[in-house]
Amino acid sequence: MFTSPGPELFQLGPFALRWYGLLIALAVLIGLNLSSWLARQRDLEQGLISDLLPILVLAAVIGARIYYVAFEWRNYQGAWWEAFAIWRGGIAIHGALLAGTMAVILFCRWRRQSFWDVLDVLVPSVALGQAIGRWGNFFNSEAFGVPTDLPWKLFIAYPQRPAVFADADYFHPTFLYESIWNLLVFALLMTLFLQGRKRRINLPAGALSCVYLLAYSLGRVWIEGLRIDPLCLGGQPPFCDGGLRIAQLMSLGLMGLAAVGLWWLYGRKRALPDLGSTRRGDPA
């Protein structure tokens, strides 16, 4: 059984160190070192990831918050300033992916780098960062699933429960499911990257990014179906009655794009259009 100790690691006067922020910082630090190492394996420009990372993190955080607030605006009407309180949670990974991708495109155009080569060295760190960051949901007692009596159930205190489940004590720890899934995706990406580097498999530029989108989205479609706090299109949580779950729609769309990309690379045996510069590095 899981029970959150609370969102704050410690508080000293007006200063509070929150688990969510600490985990995000840890994910960024690990991602910087991992992606820098992968970039060296692909013979990318030295210091490229260090220059990109601040821009990428800022764009991803802003995009994730805007995406979430846009679909949950009803909760901020009359208190719009709460939309800036990102430390209280409320970010969406698909918003981070969209804004982060746009930032990488613009950065690659500025630095005349191959977009797909750069993205391929970033996606393993993204998957690992998601696995780490999901534990922030645990400490915040958010992003959990429907009630359950499974041995690995998650206890949610009464104030954090939706009214419809006020009498339930234990819920699916969907943060744990997604964290484990992202670790598996990370392991898959690293295996493919290293095997491609050794020329044991054909891994053209962009293939690793397509595998990430396909693998992550496949798990998200299933896990999102368990959650009781989804972003809804035309409906209301916990089940989006009469509407659709935005994350599932986005995941299905990304799976379709990834499948087309892999077909283009391996079916038609053609390189993906470079969204950065016209220069392309060697495939892994």
Rank of each mutant, 00 (worst) to 15 (best):
M1R: 09
T3K: 10
S4L: 04
F10S: 03
L12Y: 09
G21W: 07
L22R: 06
I30Q: 10
L34P: 05
P54F: 01
A59F: 08
A60E: 10
A60S: 15
I62V: 15
G63D: 09
V69R: 07
F71E: 07
F71V: 07
W73V: 15
G78Y: 02
W80Y: 11
A83W: 04
G89T: 14
I93Q: 08
H94Q: 15
M102V: 15
F107V: 01
C108T: 14
Q113G: 00
W116F: 07
W116Q: 14
V118A: 00
A127R: 06
A131G: 15
F138Y: 15
N140K: 13
S141C: 12
P147M: 00
D149V: 06
K153I: 03
K153D: 12
Y158M: 07
A166H: 04
A168I: 00
H172A: 05
Y177C: 06
Y177I: 13
L183C: 11
I201C: 14
P204C: 10
A207T: 14
C210P: 01
Y212S: 11
E224L: 04
E224H: 00
E224T: 07
G225R: 02
C232N: 08
G242P: 02
M250Y: 08
M250R: 05
L254N: 08
G261V: 05
D274H: 03
G281N: 11
